[in-house]
Design a protein around this nucleic acid. Structure first.
Lengths: 187, 187
DNA sequence: ACCTGAACACCGTTCAAGT
DNA sequence: ACCTGAACACCGTTCAAGT
């Protein structure tokens, strides 16, 4: 005899994400998730493969949301301003969701990587913007430069690595300006 | 009646580091460490505060070693080449010790941060090299740009985030060249 | 002074049993 | 078809007891 479902995969992922963002990765426990969705921990295995699979799903949702934020960043006639807006959006997202963002380039076990579709979508957005500044031939490699920098910057910022005083916002502005100078199409 | 010590804090930290580098963070278990140093897990608490404290100590040792590698990077009459050598050394270190490097800017619990002395030493080395390229006024902020970029780059590289083909080494070279152009002292 | 076994609370995960 | 309690293996950590 069938039993009515008490929860859903989406609800489980949402509950897990909330736990992660509010209390950090250590608090992301199957028991805690189960309690939120009104079920016992073993029942979660009907919908997710385990804790690792849950983390992977959360990372995908977060990546998807980051992609949307990047796509929604205000465009400008000046390609450099568009790229600048994208970088600002990424930093704002990271600071608003520190625990979730911290998982974005964390080495997930095995090949449980990010959904290739999501990855391609983010890449496409940044590569487009970078190409309009650096030139189409350098689009991919310029995008990698910008993404590596912004990711390293906010990671260090979130880790509290900028301890030597000075103006962190100032360092951010200096960074994006220097990058734009560096990748600007010669001629 | 005193009992002869079977191990030492240094031996424990070294065993933990070996475990981390060979098998990853999940394998860094107090039981496994204890077995290596020839003791039972509870005895470790005589010398370390717990697993978190052990991780913190390992991060400090690794940071110290990275500082030494940066300091040993070949200097050059051309300040840009010196900075380039430092970045190459950092990347080589990260690729040689992926698991250990991955902890460097990980948000450690509470204020269990890196030893301020070690942090200051690394910062001093990079700030010096960056200042010689960007000018003393911009030394700190230029160093942050370079460190954020190299950290983001190798983190993404280690996470397997550069999936869109192209030449990763080429992107690395492009990146450091663009950075040096961007921070070069105007005039 | 250092080490140990035993115990505790807490994980993720599996599975037979219930409806 | 979905849910549950019980069980298992494995954690980190504490502590009284041994030498």
């Amino acid at each position: 005899m069938p039993t009515p479902a008490k929860t859903s995969t989406d609800e489980i992922v949402a509950a897990g994400r909330g736990l992660l963002e509010r209390e950090g990765l250590d608090a992301l426990t199957l028991k805690a998730v189960a309690e939120i969705v009104g079920v016992r921990a073993p029942s979660l295995y009907k919908r997710i493969g385990g804790r690792g699979d849950l983390v992977r799903r959360i990372v995908n949702v977060v990546s998807d949301e980051l992609a949307a934020q990047l796509a929604a960043a205000p465009a400008s006639a000046d390609a450099r301003d568009s790229l600048r807006g994208m970088v600002l959006a990424a930093r704002a997202f990271a600071l608003a969701h520190p625990h979730a963002y911290g998982l974005l380039f964390a080495p997930l076990p095995e090949d449980w990587g990010i959904d290739p579709d999501v990855n391609a979508r983010i890449s496409g957005i940044v590569i487009g913007a970078a190409g309009r500044v650096a030139g189409e031939d350098d689009a991919l490699t310029a995008a990698r430069l910008v993404v590596a920098w912004i990711h390293g910057f906010v990671t260090m910022e979130l880790a509290g690595a900028f301890r030597l005083g000075g103006d962190v916002d100032g360092s951010f502005d200096y960074g994006i300006d220097a990058l734009l100078r560096g990748i600007a199409q010669p001629g």
